[in-house]
Amino acid sequence: MRVLLLLLALLAGCDRPAATGPRRPVAGRDVVMPFAKTFRVVERDGYRVVDLTASVVGWGGDAVGEEQFQRIVLVPRTGTAPPLTGDLAGATLIRTPVMRIASNTAFHEAITRVLGVNDRLVAVGGVKSWDDALRARVRSGAVRQIGYGWHSPPDLDALIAAKPDVLLMSMEDMKSVAAMPRIAALGVPVVPIFLDNEPDYMGRVDYVRLVGMLVAREREANAFADMVARKVAVLKAAAAAQPTRSVIAAWFGGGDQWNPTIRNADAKLLRDANGRNLFEGPDDPRKDSFSRISTEQLIAQGADADCWILRDTHSIPYRDIATLRRFRAYREGCVFAGDGMHKPAADAFDYYETAVIRPDLVLGDLVRMLHPALRTEPFRYIRPDTKVPR
């Protein structure tokens, strides 16, 4: 009978489209989020309402489908839940603090780690965790594997078996969006994480504050976010006192394809390091941070850059020395790679975990890359490229 009821709930959920926006804002006292643009939190008597709104953006491309919207009501376990009617109709009710957490993306694990609640993770994407202790728990089966959210929705069998109170869910395509009502129908509240849609890299840090509300670690979350903001301010001031230098961040995608950083949070990091990004264009939350161009375009716009981030963890090796020599950055030895903090045995990159919510660490690398006078600390994530052919 229980299986039949679950099946009926699942089929009912399939008939409900994913929530889309925009929706009318709810009334209440705003809980300050200094930088976030993809979510808003309001306080009411005894509970909070969180509205999350963003587009699902294809990798290296444009937004797909309608803008997504989710309204969540956070109610303390000891409190009385408001009726989900009126402006709360269709909202997702979550009791706080959340004690059992499922996650489908690596940087969620960094958030729970800085909040001191990694022991509450009952399901994660897989075994690529940077955190050795968590990875061991996953390998032992103590933490379930539901699949990373890069290309597919979570594995429902593993998710339900983990019995989470909530699923922190990043979505890379519309298949994941379509899975949300099915997951909710099976009794797992979904909190969509639109961190990648934040136009300012500090907006990503505000997601630590949001998860802090879920797990009752707001004090720790606010202290963390304030610490990152202070460090960013110091780095920006130091960089601004140096001469502006030109830069490109373009990695090789194979064939005749390059992927330069153009817009949004990644471009802002280059700008705040007092770099003049030769490929910079207008910010657009409905586009990914990079676009695809040809080698000819790369040379035409980027040949005179002072520095070049040539590789990242996705890059295919580029061996054409004759083409490389056409770039000033290559000739003068300012070629860098974004592949630091790697544990090869685990295929784990901290760049996709801690670095996402520690933009001060990434900004520090960029500042040191562009301004040799400020190289007083070692590089961490973005470092001189020792694999570039000579």
Rank of each mutant, 00 (worst) to 15 (best):
L4F: 03
A9Q: 10
G13V: 03
P17V: 01
T20S: 14
R24E: 15
V26C: 09
M33P: 02
M33T: 09
A36D: 02
T38Y: 00
Y47T: 07
R48Y: 04
V50H: 04
V50D: 05
V57E: 03
V64G: 12
L74Q: 07
T78W: 09
L84D: 13
G90D: 12
A91P: 15
T92S: 14
I94Q: 10
I94A: 12
I101Q: 08
A102N: 06
A102W: 01
S103P: 14
S103T: 12
E109V: 01
N118T: 08
V127A: 15
K128W: 15
S129W: 13
W130S: 10
L134I: 06
R137C: 01
A142W: 03
D165G: 02
I183A: 01
G187K: 00
F194E: 01
V215A: 02
A223H: 15
D226H: 14
M227K: 14
R230T: 11
V234P: 00
L235F: 14
A237K: 14
S246L: 09
G253W: 12
Q257A: 12
Q257I: 03
P260D: 07
P260R: 11
T261Q: 04
N264K: 02
A265N: 13
G275I: 00
D288N: 05
S289T: 04
I293R: 14
Q301F: 09
C307Q: 11
L310S: 10
D320S: 03
R326L: 15
E332S: 09
F336Q: 00
A337Q: 04
D347W: 09
A348Q: 04
A348L: 05
A355R: 05
P372T: 06
R375Q: 14
P384N: 08
P384S: 00
V388D: 06
